[in-house]
Simulated scan of single mutants.
Amino acid sequence: MRITIVMASDEDGGLEKHVIELANGLAKYQSVSLIAHPRFQHLLNASVNFCAMDLSGSRHNPWTKYQLKKQILATQPDVVHAHASKTAKLMQGLVKKIQAPCVVTLHGDKSKLGAYCAFDHIITVSQRLAEKLPQTANKTVIYNGVELTQKAQPFHKNRKFIAIGRLNEVKGFDVLIEAWSDIPYVLSIVGDGEEQTKLQALIEHNGLTDRVKLLGFSDQVHQLLTEHEALIVSSRREGGPYTLSEALLLHRPVIGTDVGVMSEFIEADYLCKPDSAEALNAVIKQYLQLEAPEKEFDSAFTNAQHKLTFDCMIDQTLAVYQHCIEKGKTL
């Protein structure tokens, strides 16, 4: 099977991490080409045919679309897999011109889904997102699986908590810092981004410098998760989040805002509405009352083992490709 993956993004986040890992994983079993920004080439295994193309400009540029179509056809794909909104919009008018079936993954909540519906099949990273698509759409839910860099370690109730992600408005770390005002335990926030100065000022303003730390970017996320008791998600909106999969597979509880796939793995008692420091504070305090948190989240850990592993994601993705190839073009 010849698989061509297309990604227009040139940023550093969960989406890009997912696509790189997916390409590397699929290349163990099939012939894979990835069309993406040159900055990602060093992250790919030698078995992936990397096609460098800067798609970061306007999605309306006809020359970009022409070059993208030419590049896709040059890879002679049996199936094409586009990722996220910008790629979907770039390829919307190309799908009918490509003989191979075209799959697209919807990674986050979008108000306009017309570009996605132009594809032969839609993968969503949560059931919540799948329910937003038209009932007539060909769709499959495949959760973001992760490959751990270390084994799960025994749970320790050490009252150290962690939040992970780019320091931007979407991740809601400003809300989390406000919610931490009367929590007497350590909070580590891992990541970098445009809101770093703002968040540091907020920590200082609220007198939290003794227990809330901005650790910056780290490529040792799995080790850091293991060193903390639980992950807190404070996002205003999400597709995954990716860190949910990592934490649960490492047997670390996850609490926070009811976004993305959170409610499909975490019980309602440990979720709250986004963008509310008061609601998030209440959820944190609810968790802190637990005598044995690991027992409360045991079913979530088991569910993650069944649905969030890297191998599971690869197997399900290949099954969608095979189904689309056998079915042929639908549009």
Rank of each mutant, 00 (worst) to 15 (best):
residue 32 V to N: 03
residue 280 L to F: 08
residue 183 I to K: 02
residue 50 F to L: 03
residue 33 S to T: 09
residue 48 V to G: 09
residue 114 G to N: 14
residue 184 P to Y: 00
residue 220 Q to R: 10
residue 274 P to D: 06
residue 234 S to Q: 10
residue 5 I to A: 00
residue 37 H to T: 04
residue 197 T to G: 13
residue 255 I to E: 05
residue 194 E to R: 11
residue 30 Q to E: 15
residue 272 C to N: 12
residue 121 H to E: 05
residue 52 A to E: 10
residue 130 A to G: 06
residue 181 S to Y: 09
residue 189 I to N: 02
residue 148 L to Y: 01
residue 309 T to H: 05
residue 280 L to H: 08
residue 206 N to S: 07
residue 61 N to D: 15
residue 81 H to A: 05
residue 98 I to Y: 02
residue 43 L to A: 11
residue 234 S to D: 11
residue 161 F to L: 04
residue 286 Q to S: 15
residue 47 S to M: 11
residue 130 A to M: 12
residue 136 T to G: 07
residue 5 I to T: 06
residue 327 K to H: 13
residue 2 R to Y: 05
residue 44 L to Y: 03
residue 109 D to T: 06
residue 102 C to R: 08
residue 105 T to K: 00
residue 69 K to N: 00
residue 147 E to G: 03
residue 167 L to A: 05
residue 68 L to K: 09
residue 105 T to Q: 00
residue 59 R to L: 13
residue 142 I to H: 10
residue 125 V to S: 06
residue 266 I to C: 09
residue 318 L to N: 07
residue 228 H to F: 03
residue 317 T to Q: 04
residue 18 H to Y: 11
residue 291 E to A: 15
residue 248 L to A: 01
residue 240 G to M: 08
residue 179 A to H: 07
residue 193 G to S: 04
residue 50 F to I: 03
residue 50 F to T: 02
residue 296 E to S: 14
residue 30 Q to H: 15
residue 287 Y to F: 15
residue 214 L to M: 08
residue 58 S to Y: 05
residue 173 F to Q: 03
residue 245 S to E: 02
residue 295 K to Y: 12
residue 106 L to H: 12
residue 121 H to Y: 09
residue 149 T to H: 04
residue 162 I to C: 04
residue 314 I to T: 09
residue 107 H to C: 06
residue 48 V to F: 09
residue 127 Q to I: 04
residue 189 I to A: 01
residue 326 E to F: 08
residue 63 W to L: 15
residue 253 P to N: 06
residue 277 A to K: 11
residue 164 I to Y: 01
residue 307 K to V: 03
residue 307 K to H: 14
residue 137 A to V: 14
residue 185 Y to H: 07
residue 24 N to Q: 02
residue 274 P to K: 02
residue 131 E to F: 00
residue 153 Q to S: 14
residue 7 M to A: 00
residue 293 P to L: 04
residue 42 H to W: 04
residue 34 L to P: 11
residue 304 A to T: 11
residue 71 Q to D: 04
residue 157 K to Y: 10
residue 70 K to F: 01
residue 93 G to N: 10
